[in-house]
C-alpha cells in the first residue's frame, strides 16, 4: 500500500501525537542527568526537582520583599496588556476592514496606506513609542495594537471582498442600504473569519508583548524571564516558557470553541463552498 493511503487508527494517532513530546522530555532528562553527574552545580539543564522548587517559589509562595506571588502577578500583568492590545486591534479591524472592503472610495483612499503601514516592522517603532507615550503600560499595549492591527485590517478587507458579488446585489434587491448590508450581510459572515485571523495573530501579539516587557517593565512574564536570565536561572525560565506556551495554546483553543459555538453555520458553509 502506498504511504499516502496508510492511516493510523484514532488511538494510534493520539499516541503518535504524544510521541514527539515524550521524545523531547526524554532527551532532556537524559542530558540533564549526564550534565549533573559531571557537575552537580550545573545551571544549564536543571533537574526536575529544581523545577519543582522554582515553581513552588514563583507560583505558590509570596515574594518576601513585595508580598506578591510573582507568577500570578506576572501572568495578570501580561494578559492585561495582551487583551487590551488585541481588543483595540479587533475593534479597529472590524470597523476599518469592513469599511475598506465594502466602500470603493475608502478602499482607494486607505487601501495603499494600510498596506504600506503594515510593512513597517513594529519593533522598529518601539523606540518611537517609548519616546512619545513613555515607558508605561500605554507603550506596550500600543506596540501590540500597532503590530497586530494592520494584518487584521488587511485580512478583514480581503474577506469582505471575498463575499460573492451576487450576495451584495441580492441584498440591494431586497432593499438594503450600505449600512444594513454591512450590518446584516457582511459583518455576520466575516466575524468567524476574523476569529481565524486573530488566531494567526496570537503568535505576533505574544512576540510584541514579550519584547516590550523585556525592554522596559516592572512585571510581566517577559520581564521576569529576561530578569532572571542574569542569574542563568534556567529553573525559572523553562517553566515560565512552558506556562506562556500553555496560555497561548489555551487562547487558541478558546477561540476555536467560540467560533464553533457562536457560528454554528460556519463549518459547513466553509466546507461546501
Amino acid at each position: 500500500m502506498r504511504l499516502i493511503n496508510r492511516r493510523p487508527v484514532p488511538r494510534a494517532a493520539r499516541l503518535l501525537a504524544l510521541l514527539p513530546f515524550a521524545a523531547v522530555l526524554l532527551a532532556y532528562v537524559i542530558s540533564s542527568a549526564l550534565r549533573l553527574a559531571e557537575n552537580p552545580a550545573d545551571k544549564l539543564l536543571p533537574a526536575f526537582s529544581s523545577f519543582a522548587a522554582a515553581i513552588d517559589r514563583m507560583a505558590f509562595t509570596a515574594d518576601p520583599r513585595t508580598g506578591d506571588v510573582l507568577l500570578w502577578l506576572d501572568t495578570f500583568a501580561s494578559l492585561r496588556r495582551l487583551f487590551a492590545g488585541l481588543a483595540i486591534s479587533t475593534m479597529v479591524a472590524v470597523v476599518l476592514g469592513i469599511a475598506i472592503g465594502l466602500l470603493p472610495y475608502l478602499r482607494a483612499t486607505l487601501g495603499g496606506f494600510v498596506t504600506a503601514f503594515s510593512m513597517a516592522p513594529p519593533l522598529a517603532l518601539l523606540p518611537i513609542l517609548f519616546i512619545t507615550v513613555g515607558l508605561g503600560e500605554a507603550a506596550k499595549i500600543t506596540l501590540i495594537a500597532i503590530g497586530v492591527t494592520p494584518p487584521l485590517v488587511r485580512d478583514m478587507a480581503l474577506r469582505v471582498e471575498d463575499v460573492p458579488r451576487q450576495q451584495i446585489v441580492k441584498a440591494q434587491t431586497l432593499g438594503a442600504s450600505s449600512w444594513t448590508i454591512a450590518l446584516r450581510v457582511i459583518l455576520p459572515q466575516v466575524l468567524p473569519r476574523l476569529l481565524d485571523s486573530i488566531r494567526l495573530q496570537l503568535g505576533p501579539a505574544w512576540l510584541f508583548l514579550i519584547s516590550a516587557e523585556a525592554i522596559a517593565a516592572e512585571s510581566g512574564l517577559g520581564y521576569r524571564i529576561f530578569l532572571v536570565r542574569r542569574y542563568l536561572s534556567m529553573d525559572v525560565i523553562l517553566p515560565y516558557v512552558a506556562w506562556i506556551t500553555l496560555l497561548a495554546f489555551l487562547m487558541d483553543v478558546a477561540i476555536v470553541l467560540l467560533q464553533r459555538r457562536a457560528f454554528p453555520w460556519f463549518a459547513e458553509a466553509r466546507a461546501s463552498s
Binding site: P164, Q166, V169, K170, Q172, T173, L174, P188, Q189, W265
Partner: peptide, 18 residues
C-alpha cells in the same frame, strides 16, 4: 439595484449565515 427588481442566481443567492 433596488427592491422593485428581485433576483435569483444559480449560486450564492442565499445567505449562509441565516
Amino acid at each position: 439595484p433596488t427592491a422593485d427588481r428581485g433576483v435569483v442566481y444559480q449560486r450564492y443567492s442565499v445567505f449562509s449565515h441565516l
